[in-house]
């Protein structure tokens, strides 16, 4: 049988991007411990609406850990204390009765708060737009089995491609660097045979775009710890290597 929890929440409330924000304290009463963290917020919101208080806006959608919409700072940790778990998959049984929980939006200068706990993550799309694709117009591919890909290579690409684009890596980084997100997409595409022709232009372009929005990596490793999909820091090293190669190769190409 599920038990119920009574909690104190400190939630960041901010009406608009340029409005001042602050932590507001709410009591969360009778929260079933089977509910997820987001359902806990649903319950609190129902109570707020009953009392004519505007509900807390928080990011969420699929609630099964794959869409990457959700994500808040819970007690100073991106997605909360559970490893490899997105906020929507964090359940209240991981908390104790009487806990105080501080909830804050992702913070980065390039992630302006839209409202309360929701931030604008469009820079991540800009990075993909800069080269996070393989140019293969519809209908141009040969038979799928014409290109053989060793199982290990496909698995490793999949490890990187598992990124859900939630932004926890950037939020957790003390420098607000976008390395883990960018390098995961780069490794996904750069490690596959199909991705080779554009490998170096892609790397250069995505890294340059990333640096227009985000900070510099100092190799804390905080990003990988925060990642709900356990994306590895190794991809950042691969990206760094490829970037220097790209600088050299792209130059030799353009001088031909």
């Amino acid at each position: 049988m599920s038990t119920e929890l009574n909690l104190t929440l400190q939630v960041w409330r901010q009406a608009a991007p340029d409005a001042p924000g602050s932590f507001v304290t709410y009591e969360a009463k009778n929260i079933p411990d089977d509910s997820s963290f987001l359902e806990m917020l649903d319950i609190v919101n129902e109570g707020l609406i009953d009392n004519d208080v505007e509900p807390i806006e928080f990011p969420h959608d699929c609630r099964e850990g794959i869409c990457g919409t959700c994500g808040v700072m819970i007690n100073g940790r991106a997605h909360g204390q559970e490893r490899a778990t997105a906020t929507c998959q964090l359940h209240m049984r991981k908390f104790s009765d009487g806990d105080t929980i501080a909830i804050e939006p992702w913070r980065a200068a390039a992630f302006p708060v839209i409202k309360d706990l929701i931030v604008d993550r469009s820079p991540m799309d800009k990075i993909i737009q800069a080269g996070g694709y393989i140019t293969a117009p519809t209908g141009t591919g040969g038979d799928a089995n014409d290109t053989l890909i060793p199982k290990e290579v496909a698995e490793s690409a999949m490890d990187a491609a598992a990124c859900i684009g939630c932004g926890a890596c950037i939020a957790a980084c003390p420098n607000s660097a976008g390395q883990l997100f960018t390098s995961a997409k780069l490794w996904h595409l750069n490690s596959l045979p199909q991705g080779q022709p554009e490998r170096f232009t892609r790397t250069e372009s995505m890294v340059d775009t990333m640096e227009q929005f985000f900070g510099a990596c100092t190799n804390h490793g905080e990003c990988a710890e925060a990642c709900p999909k356990e994306i590895s820091l190794d991809f950042i090293a691969y990206m760094n290597g490829d970037y220097i190669k790209a600088k050299i190769k792209n130059r030799s190409r353009s001088s031909q």
């Binding site: 393989i134 591919g141 799928a144 690409a157 491609a161 996904h188 596959l192 199909q194």
Partner: peptide
């Protein structure tokens, strides 16, 4: 189409 775009299908 999806394979040529680098979708990491199981192999």
């Amino acid at each position: 189409q999806m394979a040529s775009q680098g979708v990491p299908f199981a192999r």
